[in-house]
Nucleic acid binder design. Structure first.
Length: 360
RNA sequence: GGACGGGUGGGUGAGUGGCUAAAACCAGCAGACUGUAAAUCUGCCGCUCCUUGCGGGCUACGAAGGUUCGAAUCCUUCCCCGUCCA
């Protein structure tokens, strides 16, 4: 259990992604009904718009977006990776050219921490350097060294702010890098451990490498992390992979997959993936997932959802997102249950079997 | 009755002698998506054959003839559609 200022969160958990202070396609009341106890939002995007100072003046991110439960903010480290053509990385930080208006911005470890304090998220991530995979060793080494230095600066900044303000109600997590090199991963973890973060993340994975390698690298890191601090594997994963990560000792995950795939007409169901735009569903009167209890599956048919997607209706994305987020959150409930019954290994292999075959 | 303009693949619509089975877009079909520059992107999209290849055959740009080595593109006639004149 993770006890945040905005409620307890049961581990292991999955965070729906709300980059720009909204989980695309879902109203917060729907998110709450679905049982989301924590969501993820983004430093870089909120800094550009509406601006962290604006959010602070509007009462902080929770109040601004009217989300009473926990929020984790990513640092912008992933944007170092995904906006590779719009930024320049140096030891000082990352210079971005805004994808919105072309303006230049400098994101440093201190700045990223400052922004997240202004946003008032429950968990803040340090700025890290996330690189592509596969990466040459020297580049991975450099990214680890820089990530460690940045983590130290972010930690210092955070502790200073804490002592100045009589403590902070925000946790700061370090992020392990190291690409696909086991020794670099271990070194990165050990260096971060010295900074004594309240939680640790594994970053820079699931960016193209095979799942087995993601697991291997994750295992290298979780083996070194303290048992009493949360471990967060960033940016994962596919439904059939989640239980594997949990088995490796991961407590927290986030991924755009359920929400993005939903907008692209891919539904995750107990029978595998359902590409609802397929012609085969045109006259299908079954719910998207017959054994799903979500409000979409209780009310609507595959034929109707397919129609909404074909017609380009907004409701298509809304309904599909609702279902997929329900699926992921329910998956986590099942995983927590499997852990209690000592049945996680079986659960994991069942998931792999199910998604390897695809829909019936 | 006359004068112009026009008829192109499921749709809109480029193309005025060979590089054109025919741009582009839409529709259709299939796929991808992992700390969100993503309601995005990719592939296929006349029929057919196989040794599945920048491969072969067939059919196709209103209809029928003709010119040409070669025609969606030029000529003739006809049929439609639009605008204007009487």
């Amino acid at each position: 259990m993770l006890n945040t200022p905005h409620g307890a969160v049961q581990t292991p958990f999955f965070m729906p992604v709300g980059t720009r202070a909204t989980v695309k396609g879902l109203r917060n009341e729907a998110l709450e009904e679905l049982g989301a106890e924590i969501i993820l939002s983004n430093t870089y995007h909120l800094y550009l718009r509406p601006g962290h100072e604006a959010v602070r003046k509007l009462g902080g991110l929770h109040k601004f977006m009217s989300w009473p439960r926990a929020i984790l903010t990513d640092s912008g480290g992933f944007q170092v990776f995904s906006l590779s053509e719009l930024r320049k990385v140096s030891d000082e930080g990352v210079r971005f050219r805004s994808h919105l208006d072309g303006s230049e911005h400098m994101l440093t470890p201190e700045k990223a921490a400052e922004i997240q304090l202004a946003l008032g998220s429950d968990i803040a991530m340090v700025l890290d350097e996330c690189i592509e995979t596969p990466a040459p060793r020297d580049k991975a080494e450099a990214a680890v060294a820089r990530t460690t230095k940045w983590a130290g600066r972010a930690r210092t900044y955070s502790l200073e702010q804490a002592s100045r303000n009589g403590g902070l109600s925000q946790w700061q997590f370090g992020i392990v890098q190291g690409a696909t090199f086991a020794d670099l991963r271990r070194a990165s973890a050990q260096q971060l451990l010295e900074l004594d973060f309240p939680g640790y993340a594994v970053g820079g994975l699931a960016v193209g490498e095979p799942h087995s390698l993601t697991c291997e690298m994750t295992g290298e890191v979780t083996a070194l992390l303290p048992r009493d601090r949360p471990r967060y594997l960033m940016g994962v994963g596919k439904p059939e992979q989640i239980a594997d990560y949990v088995a490796l000792g991961i407590d927290m995950m986030d991924c755009v997959l359920p929400t993005r795939a939903a907008r692209h007409a891919c539904l995750y169901t107990s029978e595998g993936r359902v590409l609802i735009k397929n012609a085969r569903y045109a006259m299908d009167q079954l719910p998207p997932d017959p054994s799903c209890s979500c409000s979409v599956c209780r009310r609507y048919t595959r034929a109707y959802l397919r129609h909404l997607f074909a017609a380009g209706e907004l409701t298509a994305a809304i309904l599909a997102t609702h279902h997929n987020v329900h699926f992921y959150l329910d998956l986590m409930r099942q995983i927590r249950e499997a852990i209690e019954f000592g049945n996680l290994a079986n659960f994991s292999s069942e998931m792999h079997a199910r998604y390897a075959v695809g829909p019936a």
